[in-house]
Write a protein that binds this DNA or RNA. Structure first.
Lengths: 237, 237
DNA sequence: TAAATAGTGTCTATTAGACACTATTAA
DNA sequence: TTAATAGTGTCTAATAGACACTATTTA
């Protein structure tokens, strides 16, 4: 901060935006809604809004509130993406948008959310308001990148999931498949070692539960994610 | 963006900060200066300031201007780090700081810059204003992380550098050393293939020049960095 | 017992990295 | 010729990944 006082310059508009991603059979999809007012009235846009300085503690909390407000939606994962701050992104002038990425499993989407949002494949985007197309591209790049060396994709699944579901999640994100054995050794999963009920080891990437998912075949053990764990090396393209 | 208009909420203060890093014999160092006014008067702080909406095109340009303004300093590398936006980071209330990381080689620092800034080892920081300690920790984490799978450390060196200098740069960032052969094969350098003067291949990580650095021994070929190139796999801890 | 999916061990091709050997300069 | 650093080839240990084998459920 420097000697210059704030008063000498027009304060820019500050908003937050959220790139809410979910995973369909075809890959990643983004949630868009139709704007109700100018600018870009009736155009597709990301959910977003102003920071409420009287109630929001932080930008992340504001992003959470904006998502939650319309439909009661609670994302499984939310982090700051990047701030878009320049003179040209909003026709009204200098504007700042603190953008976020949020993840939610398709299965967790309620009817209300399906009515408010339309979902689009991230690799085939419609035209939309502001720099939202750029924000989505950056968000997808971040998610793909981070997924290549971490457990981030776990947050695109329900709290409990099988290793096959997780493998399919990675495969859909990257559009690339590997053998079951390879996938499991990448995770460093030693299911035999898993002592369900024991206190979760911080070093474990996934926590094995003592629950199983049934079907017309051998039941699969259900896992849950421990922390956002970074692998030693990148595993996916 | 939602129906809510800006007028209903007090607009937060918006500033930019810059974590300017350089590399000394002991590792990464950060540039700090003493604040001249309240809040945190006389305390150490990162360079930063308000966005000048009438002259700054973007947050990055504002960060560049703030660095450049006091001493004429031009960083070799500048990117957005993260935005710190909450109710508690500034005693004056809700505030937004769009933080940036900048890199400059020690050898490029002019006398003016050495008079304005004090340099501190990033692993042994003094107490300082606002959340600047957190910003520096995040910046160092970003630089270490990105350096582990990219050519980012090239921007801590002058435009032309030898492979040994580059290896020492990586080693100082990570505090870990490898053999020369290992380092070169990590970069995928095929110096024999280098045809100096030929048009730079986009795929090349480094461009070999036809210049050499002398000394009392076999001269070393000088290289320059092509683009910020990501390796296929992480190479450093 | 057949079908279906889960879980694991083995074997091989690739790669990472240490080391040693050669190269090129100044003194 | 010696000292000093640059550049490269080789050999080995570690690893990634395909494949096949075993396990466990329902019908």
């Amino acid at each position: 901060m420097e000697a210059q006082t704030n008063q000498n310059y027009q304060s820019p508009i500050v908003t937050i935006d959220v790139v809410l991603l979910t995973l369909s059979d075809n890959g990643l999809q983004v949630a868009l809604h139709q704007r109700k007012q100018s600018p870009y009235e009736h155009q597709l846009a990301l959910p977003g809004g102003y920071i409420h300085t009287n109630e929001d503690e932080s930008a992340e909390k504001a992003a959470f509130r904006v998502l939650n407000q319309k439909t009661g939606l609670i994302p499984r994962y939310l982090e700051q993406l990047k701030t878009y701050a320049n003179t040209s992104r909003d026709p009204r002038g200098w504007s700042v948008s603190i953008s976020h990425v949020a993840l939610i499993p398709m299965s967790a989407l309620k009817q209300a959310e399906k009515e408010v949002f339309q979902f689009f494949d991230v690799d085939n985007l419609p035209t939309m308001a502001f720099d939202h197309q750029l924000q989505i591209q950056d968000a997808v790049e971040r998610v793909r990148n981070k997924s290549s060396y971490s457990t981030l994709p776990c947050w695109l699944l329900p709290e409990l999931f099988t290793l096959t579901q997780l493998q399919q999640t990675y495969e859909k994100i990257f559009g690339e498949s590997v053998s079951r054995g390879t996938f499991r050794s990448r995770l460093g999963i030693k299911v035999g070692d898993a002592i369900p009920g024991e206190s979760a080891d911080e070093a474990e990437i996934l926590i094995a539960t003592d629950q199983f998912k049934g079907g017309n075949q051998r039941p699969a053990r259900l896992f849950k994610v421990n922390h956002l764990k970074l692998f030693k090396r990148a595993c996916w393209s």
